[in-house]
């Protein structure tokens, strides 16, 4: 049974249609990335799955529950990292974890979780003394302390410096090895590529593409072949790179020429992403 099943999901705020017919499913143990620019509907989608918002239409099952009418064990089995939240500033990291541990029937050991998120050295420090990255790790720690099966991470590394992002990625990878199902939203492409087994690209409330990072890069844009001829760059874009390349090279060999600066390049996920979300970006520039 999939951990999450969504079909025909819709949600509007007044006239603004934030989510306009979204379908996807996430298998148990999978790390699934919801990728898209700000305002694409990622957070609305996730908050419907977490039970914060009611949907206007569509079917949603999360761990077998309807999040609008969850059974008693629904909240025992999910862990949530919100986009923005600050816990009690005057409590210590350990106290905060202990309070959250107390909400669950079978919590994990508090010190073990603190070590897992790399806050051992800060266990007795007040929350207000933590850096931004450390506060985010605290958020992750209190989301894991109940030993959830499913973890929601809403933009877990926004605002991090590169080093803190690497550290956060390591932690998220460790969730996979714990067998957790993870739903991650991000507007960073490299993050989705690094962490997610599958990625859904969202734009204007709809999913425009779903697949593994590799599938997204192979199925969409054409392969690019570049070389120089008479001092000028030649670029060929094709769906059949093998045939085109064979023709080019055999012709060049027949002429006894070398194809200068020959390159064969698959489009990067970034290019795919930019193509998929291009209209959105233009709309944003206008706004």
């Amino acid at each position: 049974m999939p951990a999450i099943e969504v079909s025909g999901l819709r949600k509007a705020y007044g006239n603004l249609e934030a989510v306009r017919g979204v379908d996807f499913s996430i298998e148990e143990g999978e790390v699934f990335g919801l990728l898209g620019p700000n305002g694409a509907g990622k957070t609305t989608t996730v908050e419907i799955l977490e039970g914060y918002r009611r949907r206007d239409a569509g079917e949603v099952r999360v761990l077998g529950h309807d999040p609008e009418r969850p059974g008693p064990d629904f909240r025992e089995r999910i862990g949530v990292v919100l986009q923005q939240s600050e816990m009690w500033p005057n409590l210590t990291v350990r106290e905060t974890h202990a309070i959250f541990a107390g909400y669950y029937r079978a919590p994990r050991d508090v010190d073990e979780v603190i070590a897992l998120v790399g806050l051992q050295a800060k266990a007795d420090a007040r929350v207000k003394s933590l850096s931004g990255g450390q506060k985010r790790r605290l958020d992750l720690g209190i989301a894991l302390v109940g030993d959830p099966d499913l973890v929601f991470l809403d933009e877990p590394t926004t605002g991090f410096d590169p080093q803190a992002r690497r550290a956060a990625w390591e932690m998220i990878r460790s969730l996979r090895s714990l067998g957790k199902t993870v739903l991650l939203t991000t507007h960073y492409l490299d993050e989705a590529e690094q962490l997610a087994d599958r990625v859904a690209v969202m734009r204007e409330g709809q999913i425009v593409r779903v697949g593994t990072p590799a599938e997204l890069t192979t199925t969409d844009l054409q392969t690019e072949i570049r070389y120089r001829r008479d001092g000028e760059d030649v670029v060929v874009r094709t769906d059949e790179p093998t045939r085109v390349l064979a023709e080019l090279t055999s012709a060049a060999v027949a002429r006894g020429e070398e194809l200068e600066g020959l390159q064969v390049r698959r489009p990067s996920l970034e290019e795919v992403y930019l193509t998929l979300t291009a209209e959105e970006d233009e709309a944003e520039v206008e706004a």
Partner: peptide, 13 residues
């Protein structure tokens, strides 16, 4: 405003 209330809503409390 700090999000504590919202965060607590997703726990079994």
């Amino acid at each position: 405003e700090s999000g504590v209330l919202k965060r607590l809503r997703s726990t079994p409390l």
